[in-house]
């Protein structure tokens, strides 16, 4: 890829120093490491989703600037990048709370009462699925079936799996994170 691309990409990164700069450097190192051929559009496209996965690992979500940064680096239209980001539910464009609670919405979990868990958590935390609590502590989300159907209904908090959860257990589980 032409060096001109790199400089223009760097220009889109926010100028403010701090934690973000380090994150952008991390992302840039990853993107540079991909060594894609600038003349190969299919090759540049093929690394887009891996790049977005990596960026989300680094930033925990994909803010506008990060999407533009990736677009500039891979020389893809921003619309194309955002089209991809907005297509896949795994990619998040909003900053999450300190902890992410995700409810499995698979059928097994549904049949075994996931809706009641959600209801309970929503009413306790005064936030709906997809929202973050006003104190920024929790983001409520949903999961596609994680395939742990024997544990239905399943709740994951920051990736930790809680199985066979009942609505009555929700307060105690949340309390672990409210300390």
């Amino acid at each position: 890829m032409a060096t001109a691309k790199h400089s223009s990409a760097a220009a889109t990164a926010p100028a403010t120093p701090g934690a973000d700069t380090a994150k952008y450097q991390q992302l840039e190192a990853f993107l540079t490491g991909l060594k894609v051929d600038g003349a190969d559009l299919a090759g540049r496209r093929a690394v887009l989703i891996p790049a977005l996965h990596r960026a989300q690992e680094i930033f925990s979500y994909l803010p506008t600037e990060v999407q533009k940064f990736i677009a500039a680096h891979l020389n893809l239209h921003v619309s194309e990048v955002n089209g991809v980001v907005s297509f896949y539910h795994y990619f998040k464009t909003k900053m999450s709370g300190k902890h992410t609670i995700e409810f499995c919405l698979g059928t097994a979990c549904y049949v075994r009462g996931a809706a009641k868990l959600i209801e309970k958590a929503e009413s306790m935390l005064k936030a709906k699925l997809g929202e973050t609590t006003t104190d920024g502590l929790f983001t409520l989300g949903s999961l596609r079936c994680v395939g742990a159907c024997s544990l239905a209904p399943v709740v994951q908090i920051d990736g930790k799996t809680y199985g066979r959860v009942t609505a009555e257990q929700i307060p105690a589980i949340l309390a672990e994170y409210q300390k």
């Binding site: 619309s79 194309e80 089209g83 297509f87």
Partner: peptide, 9 residues
């Protein structure tokens, strides 16, 4: 021009 894409789903 590349300004339009499907957005969301």
């Amino acid at each position: 021009v590349g300004v339009l894409s499907g957005i969301g789903r």
